[in-house]
């Protein structure tokens, strides 16, 4: 079993005529927390969408555990263990909390363990259990984010993709969310995370990539990236 869980080779992708990613190559090490940072519009969300299969590549390949998944549909990738917690949460507004979790456990790999997983999520986020029958759209922003994370975990992923999980949350809640992510990783889940808050993300990740205008500018262990003069200037405001 190789050290690399996810590998992108020379990946290009975009939206119709709009080219966003231009030949991105990167690796996410098994068991790591790997961060992707970059300015607004750099292409971070696009990269997450490419990995989860929501948009196709125009060039390059993706591999999970050395298996080529470039042409696989998103549903197949979820079965393989890739789960996305998307930017903007995208919970199901008319579903109750419980139905949102249930549909998170839709894939056949976990369907038989659905109720057990839901219980696990309620232990993880007791707040969700209190609100189990409430409609998704009536939850507060923080509760919606917890629900989005829990829904993503329902698929029992090997690779968890997180796109700005702290967006719009109060600092204490962000700290909680980061704690939960650490906990998930300690259970052996590999985490690939996009965050705006570069400082705390680099403090918490093992490895980091910096994306600019659809191209990788820099990579390295998070501690090194944090000390990089360019990063200090552009992202840490030092």
């Amino acid at each position: 079993m190789s050290d690399t869980l996810l590998e992108l080779k020379n990946v290009s992708a975009g939206y119709g005529e709009v080219k966003v990613l231009k030949g991105v190559s990167l690796k996410v090490r098994r068991g790591s927390i790997t961060a992707l940072i970059g300015a607004n519009g750099a292409g971070k969300t696009t990269l997450m969408r490419v990995v989860s299969g929501l948009i196709p590549v125009t060039q390059g390949t993706l591999a999970l555990d050395a298996v080529d998944i470039t042409r696989e549909a998103s549903s197949v990738r979820v079965e393989r263990g890739i789960s996305l917690i998307p930017e903007g949460r995208l919970i199901f507004p008319d579903f109750s909390v419980e139905e949102n979790l249930k549909i998170g456990g839709y894939i056949s790999r976990v369907r038989s363990r659905q109720s057990e997983l839901i219980k696990q999520m309620y232990r993880f986020f007791p707040r969700l259990e209190e609100r189990r029958n409430q409609a998704g759209e009536t939850l507060s922003g923080g509760e919606q984010q917890m629900l989005a994370i829990a829904r993503g975990l329902m698929a029992d992923p090997r690779l968890l993709l997180l796109d700005e999980p702290s967006l719009g949350l109060a600092p204490q809640v962000v700290a909680q969310v980061f704690e939960k992510i650490q906990e998930v990783r300690s259970k052996g889940v590999t985490v690939f995370i996009v965050e705006q808050d570069v400082r705390s993300t680099l403090a918490f990740a093992d490895y980091a990539y910096v994306l600019e205008n659809g191209e990788l500018q820099l990579e390295g262990p998070a501690a090194d990236v944090r000390e990089n003069p360019k990063v200090k200037e552009s992202y840490l405001g030092l």
């Binding site: 929501l54 998103s74 998170g104």
Partner: peptide, 17 residues
């Protein structure tokens, strides 16, 4: 449930597999 999910949001439905 999947049918009702798809009515609400196509992308979210793909995300849950």
């Amino acid at each position: 449930l999947a049918l009702r999910a798809l009515i609400q949001n196509r992308t979210a439905s793909q995300i849950v597999g």
